[in-house]
């Protein structure tokens, strides 16, 4: 940067102003539309600024509405979940207290009570009811009637030949 172009000191500026004001030739009239141009520019700038601001405000409002709606929906969802959980807990606590609805007339019988009331038949009692033959008895019966083994032997022979 050139050192020649340094800002004027207060003294230099004062001298310059006095030189211009003191000499009619130095004082030049500004163009006729000078003021109009300045005011037009300022109004134009203000319009642009206003438009920009109103756009920002509009954008904020729209996005704000969207956010509000989302928050509202979420709050409703949370409320539904809370009510459901509370209802479930209340049912779990209250239902056993209500005798009419609770199973076994409201009182839960112990295992011994249930066992004592049930008519349970033991394995030996069940088996005693059947006429079960032993292996030897069955084989002896078959031998007496012509024999089961020879019959089976005949079936095997036929199958091989076929």
């Amino acid at each position: 940067m050139s050192k020649d172009y340094e800002y004027l000191s207060d003294e230099e500026l004062k001298e310059l102003m006095e030189a211009i004001e003191g000499d009619e030739d130095e004082m030049v009239s500004a163009p006729e539309d000078f003021e109009a141009q300045v005011l037009d520019f300022i109004e134009e700038q203000e319009k642009i600024t206003q438009k920009r601001n109103s756009k920002q405000v509009r954008f904020k409002t729209v996005s704000g509405k969207k956010d509000d709606k989302k928050a509202f929906d979420y709050a409703i969802y949370c409320a539904k979940v809370l009510v459901s959980v509370a209802a479930a807990i209340i049912l779990l606590i209250i239902l056993p207290q209500i005798s009419g609805i609770a199973p076994f007339g409201g009182s839960v019988p112990s295992r011994e009570e249930v066992v004592s009331t049930a008519n349970i038949v033991t394995k030996d009692e069940v088996l005693a009811g059947y006429n079960t033959k032993s292996r030897e008895e069955v084989l002896n019966e078959n031998n007496d009637e012509g024999g089961l083994l020879p019959k089976l032997q005949m079936i095997f022979d036929h199958t091989r030949e076929g």
Binding site: M27, V28, S29
Partner: peptide, 10 residues
Amino acid sequence: KNLVFSVCLK
């Protein structure tokens, strides 16, 4: 405006 314009011109 005339003074400012003259300063600028000078």
